[in-house]
């Protein structure tokens, strides 16, 4: 049976950092191990084989990143989260700002971005929002821009949308073409997709709301700390940060600069610079 020890995982992340400047050295070990094993199995490579391929074939790094990063998302995941967004968080932002900015950090294939756009459209404020969606994986950003997903995923997405209590029929938002659900591109009109690495990337803008759900669970606590600092700096005072329902920031250094707005849905508000 294929297995890999911690020392080899460290060799791999160190090598990638030295050669390509992607930094996985502070990724959570259990999932990083599973992801690397998955690539080794998929490509039929040993540890040495993997290192050799990473060294000899630079284009392989993109494929590697695409497999390494977790790109499993669904639209309107946790419908209760989206209801709180619609009924509490966005109205609170709109009380003070006619126009506002949202950052989807680690947007993967774009399902959350699209969910946000659908919700904003139903609220009649899609035009007032500027959205930036980032990921470190260029391949997945192309998929997010295409807003085209296998039709088989729509059953779950539609169930979530119904639980979210959207005002339309979910099917109104896409056309079926060759087994794919092609979403209406107008939904993404105010979204710009950019490659950005949360780990080594700089602060690039200020936002009223940052969504980063189920991304930092792949980081260790050292890295979570650093990324939370970046989010803190990227938020306007009284801006909001949403993370996954089973994530927690309470052990981060910057936690005391936020208050919990909704503990069930893990929505935080920056209260101190």
């Amino acid at each position: 049976m294929l297995d890999i020890d911690i020392a080899d995982l460290k060799r791999i992340s160190e090598f990638i950092y030295q050669k390509y400047h992607y930094d996985f050295r502070n990724y959570a070990m259990s999932s990083f191990k599973r992801r690397v094993l998955r690539i080794m199995e998929l490509k039929k490579l040993s540890v040495e084989g993997l290192l050799k391929k990473l060294n000899d074939s630079p284009p392989f790094i993109n494929e590697f990143l695409d497999e390494l990063t977790v790109n499993v998302t669904e639209m309107f995941r946790d419908p209760s989260f989206w209801r709180v967004m619609r009924e509490e968080i966005l109205p609170a932002i709109m009380l003070n700002h006619k126009q506002f900015k949202i950052w989807h950090a680690g947007c993967s294939s774009g399902e959350e971005v699209l969910s946000m756009c659908i919700m904003l459209k139903e609220m009649g404020v899609l035009h007032d929002v500027t959205m930036i969606a980032t990921d470190l994986d260029v391949n997945i950003l192309e998929r997010a821009k295409a807003a085209t997903y296998p039709i088989k995923n729509m059953e779950l997405n539609e169930k979530n949308y119904i639980r979210f209590q959207g005002t339309k029929s979910f099917k109104d938002y896409y056309q079926e073409e060759n087994g794919m659900a092609v979403f209406n591109k107008d939904l993404l009109m105010n979204v710009s997709f950019r490659r950005h690495d949360l780990v080594v990337g700089d602060i690039f803008n200020k936002f009223d709301l940052i969504l980063c759900r189920n991304v930092m669970i792949y980081f260790n606590q050292t890295l979570q700390n650093e990324v939370l600092k970046k989010f803190h700096e990227s938020l306007f005072k009284y801006g909001y940060l949403a993370i996954g329902s089973k994530e927690s920031l309470i052990w981060c250094d910057y936690a005391n600069r936020f208050i919990v707005v909704n503990n069930e849905e893990k929505i935080y508000k920056k209260i101190k610079d």
Binding site: A28, S31, V72, N214, I217, G244
Partner: peptide
């Protein structure tokens, strides 16, 4: 001896 959650496949 801590938990790690994930949303993998």
């Amino acid at each position: 001896h801590s938990f790690a959650l994930s949303t993998e496949e």
